[in-house]
Design a protein around this nucleic acid. Structure first.
Lengths: 363, 363
DNA sequence: AAGATAGATGATAACGTTGTCATCTAACTT
DNA sequence: AAGTTAGATGACAACGTTATCATCTATCTT
């Protein structure tokens, strides 16, 4: 066990939560409406609306309207606009326990959509059907224009119902076959194959993979890629080199523990996603297994945190920028062209970032 | 330079972006409204509304209403409710370039607010006054019930205007003095002092600090804490041991570079926030400076990524859970009790997490 | 200069809810 | 059993905006 003693509240001599309370006199004046503006400017509400929406209005009316708007501090009420226009210009994004990877995606997507006047409402679920169901219900009630989410199988049935109700959906990462939705995926199989091939080319023959249950498409494809690479190098596919459990940190932690307890432990490990790699690294650190000295480790998904590791974690993955770009692209086409236009599926190639976490096996 | 060669698109033999297009026949049936439900159930809309809002209705009416709702697949339109009720139940959160730290906060805040039926709309700004201004304008137009944001000085003037317009604001991390808002802060000074004291107690005498410009309150408090600790141990406050620049990754990168180029470089560094620490670690890795062998490094802010470092980064900071709890607490009181009730300021104590990135100086 | 015409304007009805208020119903009184 | 009353119900007006459409106003014809 390494030096991971989490001494909480060292020197907690004082009260750990101080509270102060001021009294404040509030002046919450009512917001001006378009009617107020019309009244002050001496025109009809319709004309003000036309002005706000960039439709042509007579020059003589322009000045008084602008004056009134600035005098009253008028701000268009987007809730009323949504109500009338039957479209909110809000996109819902479902994220599983906001990890660094999804945070980057959310950030980028928000930025891409901003210039079009659209916002992103986020909902964090905890990988359970029940919580995903609630999230979708929530989005539907808020009448979001579309939902972006990972196409996990557990979301399948609920998602189908909402799509039938007219919800536009963009799936990423995992697929739900048959669902009427737009899709953005990574080239999971080919990218995994490349990454594992890299390990084999370094001379590794005992290459294990840690992944979760064979449920979701991305995971399956990554497993296939792993197997492709092994076969290409004439390496044996060993049942005990495939650590299966949950696709989260705990899963990665447990998988590495089990793999390294084998009579003939692997010399290199391919971890199938961000969360599992985090868990794997935690186990390795706690047990003084140094990467890459004692073990080579590569990961699917590429995030800034990989650089913190002194060796740097060699990984394959698309940047959140590229992924967000692709999602924004299909999303905007859907929103602009309505639900009638054909569904698209984008496959984005992942890049291998060679850092230092994989090297020749120590024999 | 370490082995950080970013080989992009290794083996990019095929087209890197594939696209497939299906055609789909769409059936986008109109959503049922409360009027439809009333009609089908044979009651007045008001009664359905009362049912939906949990107000007492006669037993005889209950069954037909429930039947109609389920038959029609009716879903309450929250946009219309917001319109009528003049409150959206949406909270806006402004986040600077969604880092891991802020992602955790956003995640937690979303979860805390969910049980109260509230959602969080996020807006990513890039630390510039212009972009913050746009964000607040955006939130105000969407009539969010409140805004949660870092009280950066550059946001001061704009924020003041919105508060005068009646916007409820919760400030965290940094303060904007005089603003009528609720506040949640960390005990920056005391926590920094503790962390630097830890370095001094290990025997370090050449302790530097990297921080940004002396603008925002949290930064100032952290600098004061650093100075407190040095004074307490009779150590000299050296001008050249205070690397000042920007509070972001680039700032941390540059600061470490400059500090280690000094004729008498420090043996320990206190980095004032998450982003700067990320930058510092990047420089150190690129130049083969090993932590803690060659240099001790401690950081303000605590995030999961610190565990990836094999030594583990010793840090001080409040968990995003604790911070989100505090923010949610003041937020809900504000939202439930209206703008009249007194403003609160919470100070949350940070915890020191001793990992392995600081040890005795090698003399 | 008067008639024709393109195009902006004003009044008003939506959008889907909730809140108000006068009315009606059913359960108590006596 | 009739009178009283607490309380649920129904009709309808908001909430702030945009879309429609008939009307009005400038400009262009001749």
């Amino acid at each position: 066990m390494a030096s991971q003693l989490a001494l909480k509240g060292v020197g907690d001599d004082q009260n750990s939560l101080t509270q102060r309370r001021d009294t404040v006199s509030e002046t919450s004046r009512k917001q001006a409406t378009i009617t107020d503006v019309a009244q002050v400017a001496g025109v009809a509400v319709g004309t003000v609306s036309r002005y706000l929406n960039g439709l042509p209005i007579r020059n003589a009316k322009r000045q008084p309207i602008e004056q009134a708007i600035s005098d009253l501090g008028y701000r268009r009420n987007l809730v009323a606009v949504s109500m009338k226009r039957q479209t909110t210009h809000i996109v819902g994004m479902m994220v599983p326990a906001l990890s660094e990877f999804h945070a980057g995606l959310l950030d980028q997507l928000t930025r891409r959509l901003r210039p079009t006047g659209r916002a992103v409402l986020s909902y964090c679920h905890d990988l359970e059907a029940r919580s995903i169901e609630e999230g979708l219900e929530f989005f539907a009630s808020h009448r979001v224009d579309a939902v972006v989410m990972d196409g996990l199988v557990i979301a399948g049935r609920t998602l189908e119902r909402h799509v039938n109700d007219g919800l536009s959906v963009v799936l990423y990462d995992n697929d739900i076959p048959g669902l009427s939705a737009d899709r953005v995926f990574t080239t999971n199989r080919r990218s995994s194959e490349r990454l594992v091939r890299h390990l084999a080319e370094l001379g590794h023959t005992r290459i294990a993979m840690i992944a979760g249950r064979r449920e979701d498409s991305a995971g399956l494809e990554r497993i296939e890629g792993y197997e492709d690479a092994l076969r290409a190098h004439g390496l044996e596919l060993r049942q005990d080199y495939y650590g299966a459990g949950f696709w989260n940190e705990e899963g990665g932690y447990a998988a590495v523990r089990d793999l390294l307890a084998l009579p003939e432990p692997p010399t290199a490990i391919f971890s199938a996603n961000y969360n599992m790699t985090m868990g794997a690294l935690r186990w390795l650190r706690e047990h003084n297994v140094e990467v890459p000295r004692d073990l080579s480790l590569v990961s699917f998904d590429d995030v800034p945190a990989w650089s913190i590791h002194p060796a740097g974690i060699t990984a394959v993955g698309q940047s959140s920028e590229k992924l967000a770009d692709a999602i924004a692209s299909v999303l905007l086409e859907r929103l602009d062209h309505g639900p009638q236009s054909g569904r698209r599926t984008l496959r984005i190639d992942a890049n291998i970032i060679l850092r230092g976490s994989a090297r020749n096996p120590t024999l």
